[in-house]
Design a protein around this nucleic acid. Structure first.
Lengths: 204, 204
DNA sequence: TGCGCTCCCGTACCGTCAGTACAGTTTTCA
DNA sequence: TGAAAACTGTACTGACGGTACGGGAGCGCA
């Protein structure tokens, strides 16, 4: 029971790294079992097929993602009472966290499964959708809190602003990878941060 | 010669649609030859291997991409002398173009090849990088023109702002696909447009 | 008329990979 | 100590990427 979880986690670790680097199709089960030191039968004991591996992978990824956001924006909220300040601090903390990754962000599993959508079943596509909706709810609530205190200088919807956070993160990851410049992602997040500050800055 | 080009284009058409929908790995050569009505030997006459197909695909995609940007921002420049107004009009035109795609943006090949980077050779990764750099040059020049006339309200670098255009486009595509909401991409572009307007709006 | 070139077909084959089937073995924990 | 959990081993199937190579239709040209 305990051992099973451990092996399962080892497979997921190897799979996540490989999938983010090479994509779903280019990652073979054979290579995963070599890396984790089990046999093919062992692999299929844990996962019925490759699709179920992808599902477990995505599930774990999203949970971890949520945990990180909880921590960062929770900490930011401790540092400032004002919702705008807290959000700006959160973006800064997130940018710093992303800067500290030596090889840049490893990639977002949600994005990789989006760009290869038809390779996966409906269940995975729905998990992806729910993840994006959770981001919208999370950041949307923050923007609504901010709007209770500050009047935006442009009439923008809280949900659209929330989606902008996801957009900048996902787009930043793509751009960073394309340019091979890890710094681009945290930089783009800071540009967005400037925009948010400008948007809610009281008219002089 | 003429016939060869035609067949080649037909393969590329089928491949592009399939790759954007399913990803690289999930697109089989067998299915491409069925769709284009040629044989396997015929396919390998045109492309040495799958990687070379990807290269030709990316090349064609980037050229087309550049052409579209040339048209849209060229047209925008005709409609307004002021560089800021021209850029804002360009973003609006681009947003409208993206809105008019019935099934949403089919996906960016640069992004799909980024999320599967190790599956491709260095040449393709370099093409991807050059494409992103071209976007930076293109939009960077526009922001520099704008900055000659308008003082930004936040100290932001023209190149970082240029990267923001790419970021919003790539991120918007990912988000649109994840959410299954084609409208998200053009919406996000308009949110970014508001930010740009706000950034260069003369202080009241 | 026939030569050569482009463009493609047909066939046979190889290695890799996902996945199946199932019997047997070790490990773990109650 | 015994049953369940966690594997191993072997043998196979079918799809796919890719190779090899001979052949042939159509076309331009001398």
């Amino acid at each position: 029971m305990r051992k099973g979880e451990e092996t399962r986690a080892k497979i997921l670790d190897a799979a996540e790294a490989a999938m983010l680097a090479k994509g779903f199709g280019a990652t073979s089960i054979d290579e995963l079992i070599v890396e984790t030191g089990i046999t093919k039968s062992g692999f299929f004991y844990h996962f019925r097929d490759k699709n179920e591996l992808a599902k477990a992978l995505l599930e774990r990824y999203i949970e971890n993602d949520e945990r990180i956001y909880d921590e960062i924006f929770g900490r930011a909220r401790e540092l400032a009472d004002d919702p705008l300040q807290a959000f700006l601090i959160g973006l800064k903390l997130l940018s710093e966290l992303l800067s500290d990754l030596p090889n840049g962000h490893p990639g977002c599993l949600v994005a990789t499964m989006c760009t290869q959508e038809r390779a996966f079943d409906r269940e995975i596509q729905e998990m992806n959708r729910q993840a994006a909706l959770m981001w919208r709810r999370r950041f949307g609530a923050m923007f609504r809190d901010i709007m209770q205190v500050y009047q935006p200088r442009e009439a923008l919807d809280a949900d659209q602003l929330a989606d902008m956070v996801s957009t900048v993160l996902e787009g930043g990851i793509v751009l960073s990878k394309a340019l091979k410049e890890p710094k681009s992602l945290p930089d783009q997040l800071l540009v967005f941060r400037s925009f948010v500050r400008l948007l809610f800055q009281p008219a002089a």
